[in-house]
């Protein structure tokens, strides 16, 4: 079988912010470092990390919508070519779509229907939108409302509809389901799955590992601003098939797998330890872990750990 084409390849991505300290001092805050993710056509990859760890910035970095003081490094390849700023501007909204985390991304002054259709009035677009709304249990009247008139859950479904409108080749979904109940979560996820099965690449950014395991093909585990493991979903069936000690700790913390926990919290970007960011919480920590840790291939996946075998 042919290997599927790579649609998105992110290599050693870093995102940092310049902040002003007291007086005239300036500091660089590295929020994301050495992040690597690859998405193939027809594949759904989940980036799983805890809330507040900077995952959303990954989506914003790919689309070129970082705040003005954000600096991006590393390479992003889309469809084989580098994703330059100009290409980002051309592709986003058409070939690359974002399902944002917050309803604040909707235009408050534009009615829902025209907003999703991007002003298109042809019968075909209208028909398509009607069908999408139907599948999300949104009444057709909703198209005539403004975002502030909708409930949180309805706004959420509207955001997801925006992605279904075009024929995207890459969908980036940033925590698309909080505030929705389980049935709706499943439905939304099945639509992303469908987009992937029709050949698009889907990058799902979420804190919910259980949800990711239900729908995704691969999972990239995100810890303290970097990817520590890239694993097939099936690797999560057992602890032994996982590679990184943090992924294993996550596995053991699942209620159905014993509900065990490890001490400590994820370090804040300002006070990262030297070398491995997981070092202080890791049982296998040794002197070598204070140095550079390469992201290496292991058993069909990838891991950023010296001790994993």
């Amino acid at each position: 079988m042919d290997k599927k084409k790579v649609i998105l390849e992110i290599k050693n991505l870093s995102i940092s912010f310049q902040q002003y300290d007291k007086g005239f001092g300036r500091t660089e805050l590295d929020v994301i470092r050495d992040l690597n993710v690859t998405v193939h056509e027809g594949e759904m990859v989940a980036v799983v990390g805890s809330s507040g760890s900077g995952k959303s910035l990954l989506a914003h970095g790919i689309l070129g919508i970082l705040p003005y003081n954000g600096v991006i490094g590393g390479t992003i390849l889309y469809d084989g070519g580098e994703l330059t700023r100009k290409r980002k501007e051309q592709l986003r909204g058409n070939e690359i779509v974002l399902v944002p985390q917050s309803v604040a991304f909707l235009d408050p002054l534009m009615k829902i229907g025209p907003q999703i259709r991007k002003g298109k009035k042809d019968p075909e677009s209208k028909e398509k939108l009607n069908r999408i709304f139907e599948s999300y249990h949104l009444k057709q009247e909703v198209q005539e409302l403004y975002p502030f008139e909708l409930s949180g859950g309805m706004n959420r479904r509207v955001l997801v509809s925006t992605a279904m409108m075009g024929n995207p080749r890459l969908v980036i979904a940033d925590e698309p389901t909080p505030g929705l109940h389980m049935k709706m979560v499943r439905r939304v996820m099945s639509h992303f799955r469908e987009l992937a099965d029709r050949g698009a690449g889907v990058l799902l950014i979420t804190h919910d590992l259980e949800q990711a395991l239900e729908v995704a093909d691969r999972v990239a585990v995100f810890y303290a601003g970097t990817t520590v493991e890239d694993a097939d979903v099936s690797d999560f069936a057992r602890e032994e098939t996982l590679r990184h000690p943090y992924s294993r700790a996550l596995w053991r913390a699942l209620p159905q797998n014993g509900f065990q926990f490890i001490g400590g919290t994820q370090p804040y970007v300002k006070d990262l330890p030297e070398g491995c960011p997981f070092g202080p919480r890791c049982e296998q920590f040794c002197e070598a872990c204070r140095g550079e840790i390469p992201y290496r291939e292991l058993r069909g996946g990838k891991v950023r750990c010296l001790c994993a075998e």
Binding site: S50, S51, P178, Q266
Partner: peptide, 14 residues
Amino acid sequence: STMLDLITQSQIWS
């Protein structure tokens, strides 16, 4: 604990 990661969830509940 819905918005927490699994390890924090388990820490807090225990």
